[in-house]
Design a protein around this nucleic acid. Structure first.
Lengths: 127, 127
DNA sequence: CTATGTGCAAAGCCTTTGCACCCCC
DNA sequence: GGGGGTGCAAAGGCTTTGCACATAG
């Protein structure tokens, strides 16, 4: 591991795993802070960044607003509700092969891609 | 048109069309401001938002940093250089069919998707 | 004439950072 | 005991907003 195994790190990681639905950094902080009021926001942000960097968590960049974090690190895509902001996993096969095409037509050396869906979640469809 | 045809709007639109490479709002502002120093940043941001809303321009949300704007409104994807931040078009066919799959597996009512590539541009590959 | 757009500056949102202190290894 | 981690508060980048004034239609 690239760093020390501090109490704060353990707590943040546990909280991230406990929060089911792709929490934002701030939501993780709120959740952590509720139980351990001494842990600062800066620390939570720093730890989440580090987890993402190490590949222990996934940083999900959402088109609108704050980044979300996902404790599931396998390759998968996300859908975001345009009404309530909720983020869910989506079972669509990896489109990694598109990268070849992109490389060919653009001249770029491609190292990754992002695919995100927008829609209305089942809950919001009811209203 | 959803609003008035003001001088400022004309100037911003013209400048957006003149700037080839997916300028950020701030780059559009700089360019506008250089020629017409009385036009404020707020106005440029407001006009760009409106153009995007009307479908006259495209807002390109890039994973890192500021949003870019594109005067080309046909359906296409983008690639971003992770070194220099440059953004280019990419000739990959629209993957609209993925939306069906996403809808089926997620229960969301899908209304759009975003696909973006990351890579190293030809220029940056040299160094 | 009046609803809409504009300019200015201030605030907002999310995130990072400088600094002094602390503590894991 | 030394280098990385933490807490606090402040700053940072990008964007929006409140308000008073100007202007298109």
């Amino acid at each position: 591991m690239a760093g020390r195994n501090t109490v704060q790190r353990e707590i943040v990681l546990e909280e991230l795993r406990g929060l089911a639905n792709h929490p934002t950094a701030d939501e993780v902080y709120e959740s952590v802070h509720a139980k351990h009021s001494s842990i600062s926001k800066a620390t939570v942000y720093r730890i989440l960044n580090k987890l993402a960097e190490e590949g222990v968590a996934l940083r999900v960049k959402i088109n609108n607003g704050a980044d979300h974090f996902d404790h599931q690190v396998f390759d998968h895509y996300h859908v975001r509700c345009v009404r309530c902001g909720r983020v869910d996993d989506v079972e669509v096969p990896s489109q990694a092969s598109l990268e070849e095409q992109a490389a060919r037509t653009s001249g770029y050396q491609i190292c990754g891609h992002t695919l995100q869906f927008d829609g209305i979640c089942p809950e919001c469809q009811k209203s």
